[in-house]
């Protein structure tokens, strides 16, 4: 029962027959081998699977691949350009915003949407934006600082 899906991921066009029940995260990880997007919970709670779909941060563990038909998707693998880290990635490195790295891709993609919507967020606005992303390592402290670093660099 394959369904045809056409998507653009990190600037590259893809067309696949997918199982109608396949989640977007499984499509990205298994069909496109983009394993930077992680599955942490299956219930839209932890945010490790966050990607940008047409510029909006979406938890790809609860979106069907077929729902992404025609969409532009950006994953963590598409954030750096020409070997240079995106300022958000750079912020995480400079401010020690990651430890085990598992939640990090989702944090970076969530931060990307936050900074697109609100280039100069307050600490509270950053914390609020991260409400749907769990990190068990950093206590969020340095993630907040990483996003502040990126906001400054991008402005």
């Amino acid at each position: 029962m394959g369904v045809s899906v056409k998507v653009t991921v990190n600037g590259e066009r893809h067309e696949h027959e997918v199982d109608a029940r396949q989640m977007l995260v499984d499509y990205l990880r298994e069909s496109l081998h983009l394993t930077g997007t992680h599955v942490g919970c299956d219930t839209t709670a932890c945010g490790a699977c966050t990607v940008l779909v047409d510029g909006r941060a979406v938890k790809s563990c609860t979106m069907l691949a077929v729902q992404a038909d025609g969409a532009e998707i950006k994953t963590i693998e598409g954030m750096a350009s020409n070997g240079d880290l995106h300022p958000i990635q750079e912020g995480f490195h400079e401010e020690h915003g990651l430890q085990c790295g598992f939640c990090t891709p989702g944090m970076v993609m969530t931060a990307a949407q936050l900074l697109a919507d609100n280039p100069n967020p307050s600490e509270q606005e950053i914390r609020h934006a991260l409400e749907g992303n769990f990190c068990r390592c950093t206590g969020y402290h340095n993630i907040v600082k990483a996003i502040q670093y990126a906001a400054k660099k991008l402005s």
Binding site: G36, H38, A80
Partner: peptide, 12 residues
């Protein structure tokens, strides 16, 4: 170790 995690190249 940051770079591999930040670019989605960790290997879990």
């Amino acid at each position: 170790e940051d770079k591999r995690f930040l670019t989605g190249k960790g290997r879990y």
